[in-house]
C-alpha cells in the first residue's frame, strides 16, 4: 500500500497538522518509505494469533467511584495560552 498526495492531505487533516502544498510530495515519499519497511509483516501468517493487549497478565485495578482530586481551577488553567475566569478560551465554535 502506498500513499498519494490526496491521502497525505487527508491524513494531515485527520491529524490536525497544517501541511503546505510544497511539503506534500516530500511527506508522501517519507511516509511511503516507512510503509514499505513495515510491509514485511505480511510475510507472517497471523491468522489464529491473539493480538497483544497487555505485556503481562494484569487485572485492571479499580477504585471507588468518588471524587478524589480537584478544587484547584486556577492551577489547571495556569499554563493555558488564553484563559479567563478559570475557563480556557478558544475561537468561537458555535454560530
Amino acid at each position: 500500500m502506498s500513499v498519494d498526495a490526496t491521502t497525505v492531505r487527508r491524513i494531515a487533516h485527520l491529524a490536525r497538522i497544517a501541511v503546505s502544498e510544497d511539503e506534500v510530495p516530500h511527506l508522501a515519499g517519507e511516509l511511503n518509505a516507512i510503509l514499505a519497511f513495515v510491509e514485511q509483516l505480511n510475510q507472517v501468517d497471523v491468522g489464529s494469533v491473539v493480538p497483544m493487549t497487555s505485556v503481562s497478565p494484569t487485572v485492571m485495578r479499580r477504585r471507588a467511584d468518588a471524587v478524589t482530586d480537584g478544587g484547584y481551577g486556577d492551577t489547571v488553567v495556569a499554563n493555558a495560552p488564553m484563559s479567563e475566569d478559570g475557563f480556557f478560551l478558544v475561537p468561537k465554535v458555535v454560530e
Partner: peptide, 23 residues
C-alpha cells in the same frame, strides 16, 4: 491543541488554530 498549555498559533477558526499550532 493550543488550548490547555503550550504554544498557540491563531487561525480563522478552531480547526485552523489546531492545525497551525501543531504544524
Amino acid at each position: 491543541d493550543g488550548v490547555r498549555y503550550g504554544l498557540r498559533v491563531p487561525g480563522r477558526d478552531i480547526v485552523e488554530m489546531y492545525e497551525n499550532t501543531r504544524a
